[in-house]
Nucleic acid binder design. Structure first.
Lengths: 349, 349
DNA sequence: ATGAAAGCGCTAACAT
DNA sequence: ATGTTAGCGCTTTCAT
């Protein structure tokens, strides 16, 4: 295997120096048309490729950023990455993606590794926001910018882009209440993650504003998966404690509950209305279609990248950017009359 | 902003040389316990971080691979990346992800850029397999390994991991036929992409084996999106040309068709049975749940990475690895009796 | 067990 | 307009 050709090889072949070749290749002004052409021809002839690693070493940056997320397999994260990738590639940046699978150890390892001069910055949605984020503090200490989105650590010196989860949840609860639902249950997530806490807070505040007392059985903790939703619904039936409505912090458990409740003869939304969170693709495909909170994922991704760029350029940016949610009302929380025409679906966004 | 500390700084502080520091840091045998400890302490004290770019330049490789795919937002690709990422991170490799959004120009640009000493290898699912893959030939010429998966170019010197799309499609058609369906329509994709061609071939072969003539109106070309599925179903109704069953090369148009047909009073699967392709999450959430071909996405991703590693190590690998499909039969293609208990859903895998 | 020196490929400040 | 030189941070061969 022949060695790769470098600018020195081109220089030698042409009887000039490497600097000239370097300049010619980059279209520097102070190089004659003639030489420039010769260099380019020779480069092509010798099958020359720039060595980006050498350039990076010289420059001190890599034009690469890392995106660290819990999992790819969620509409929200997939779209957020879409948004990031879209402008990143326009700006000539590469994007390294790491899934933490909700494992703090993986998160630490990835951050540690990538912060060793591999990337110029991080866009992160954290596993947990409780206490254990020394690894990010560390990265910041090395002057590597970090922007958090959606799930952020609590410390004040971390920049973040997030949704108005609190308001969104209040909004969802109010909308359910507008259907004369009062016994509204809640599927919540781990309380050590910012977004789940905020959503639960919003639910509670919404209920409070409605003057509705919330017994603790109305809240189903750590109910974020399909299976957890199934279990929660089965418990409702077993305990003969059936709600008027459910507000879920995620679409996934809601689907599980939907199937169990429907199978047991409950009509959605007449008997039980439902609203989820995340605008997963499947929410417009179920019967009835599911109301859900859209998290503006692509915008969030784009915004995160834009802010990260500013930090990389040394500009100062706001500590927090809050995007406004979109409550998507579908059949599962429509007045019975309106939802009547079941089977009629709009195409998803 | 203070400059980052290098091994020279540590060496100076300790009155030793950089080579010793380098060796100590990597736990080289020939360095005394004592010095090793001193170096490590000093490194911590001076907040030293390895410069991966310098290491890469020295080593001539980056321990980074690129995954180039049409879009992230498909269950198949998301899971394939899951699979790749899983072992990649175990093997200490970073993964750069690029979406081509089905734009050959983007594909070329990304491949060109990343092949400039940025990555050690590529895992690719191509935009199109027709003629225009000089960019990959180019990469191979530079001794950078490439493994294709799912969608591959036709030339023989490209390695690939793929599904037995032809057999899978035949299988799906046979299964539909086993329900006494004979007028089986087909939603197909662009014929300039390997997988769509294979699936259509499998459909045709399956029909031929059943002794069923296929008029060309039975095949709906370029029907890969939700909207295209809606249009296709509307056309069936308009033309009063209703099938017994539909075999679709993608789950997405099938959903569109499902809603239109159901709204028009057709019962699924009694009047029209259906089978899709891709095992999107939503296929188990619809009513009826949709039969679909599972493409073994995670395995495919893992296999692609394993083969790529072998190529990187200089080992030779087979030209083609074919994974066996899984036909997932759900309510939309079950005998009417079995599908009777509609509303009962199994949780998705 | 440790040091000296060269070099990975490129760029840029400083000549001329 | 082109050349000279030094250096980005690390590893490694060859000494000692």
């Amino acid at each position: 295997m022949q060695k790769k050709t470098s600018i020195y090889d081109i220089a030698n072949a042409l009887g000039i120096t490497a600097s000239t070749v370097s300049r010619a290749l980059r279209g520097h002004t102070n190089i004659s048309q003639e030489i420039t052409q010769q260099v380019k021809d020779m480069a092509k002839k010798m099958n020359y490729r720039k060595n980006t690693v050498a350039v990076n070493l010289k420059n001190g940056y890599t034009k690469t950023i890392a995106v660290i997320i819990p999992q790819l397999n969620r509409q929200f994260f997939a779209s957020a990455i879409d948004g990031i990738e879209e402008i990143a590639s326009k700006s000539g940046y590469n994007v390294i993606i790491c899934q933490t699978r909700n494992d703090v150890t993986k998160e630490k390892k990835a951050v540690q590794l990538l912060s060793e001069s591999v990337v110029d910055g991080f866009i992160v949605s954290v596993v947990t926001d409780k206490s254990d984020y020394a690894h990010f503090r560390n990265v910041l200490d090395q002057q590597i910018p970090v922007v958090f989105f959606d799930r952020y650590p609590l410390a004040s010196d971390f920049k973040r882009i997030c949704l108005d989860d609190f308001e969104a949840s209040m909004h969802a609860v109010e909308q359910l209440a507008s259907l004369n639902k009062r016994k509204i249950f809640h599927f919540s997530g781990h309380q050590h993650v910012s977004i789940w806490r905020e959503r639960t807070r919003g639910y509670l505040e919404g209920m409070k504003n409605l003057g509705i007392e919330v017994p603790k059985e109305w809240i189903s903790e750590n109910t974020l998966t399909h299976e957890a939703g199934v279990r929660a619904a089965e418990k409702m039936i077993r305990d003969n404690n059936i709600p008027d409505a459910i507000f879920s912090s995620s679409d996934h458990p809601l689907i599980g509950a939907l199937f169990v409740l429907r199978k047991n003869g409950y009509r959605i939304p007449e008997d039980i209305a439902m609203t989820g969170y995340g605008n997963e693709m499947f929410t417009s495909y179920t019967q009835p279609s599911l109301s859900t909170v859209d998290q503006r994922s692509a915008e969030m991704g784009r915004e995160a990248f834009v802010q990260l760029m500013r930090m990389i350029r040394g500009e100062s940016i706001p500590d927090e950017i809050v995007l406004r949610h979109k409550l998507i009302v579908r059949e599962s929380s429509m007045p019975a009359a309106a939802a009547g025409g079941a089977g009629v679906k709009k195409k998803p966004k």
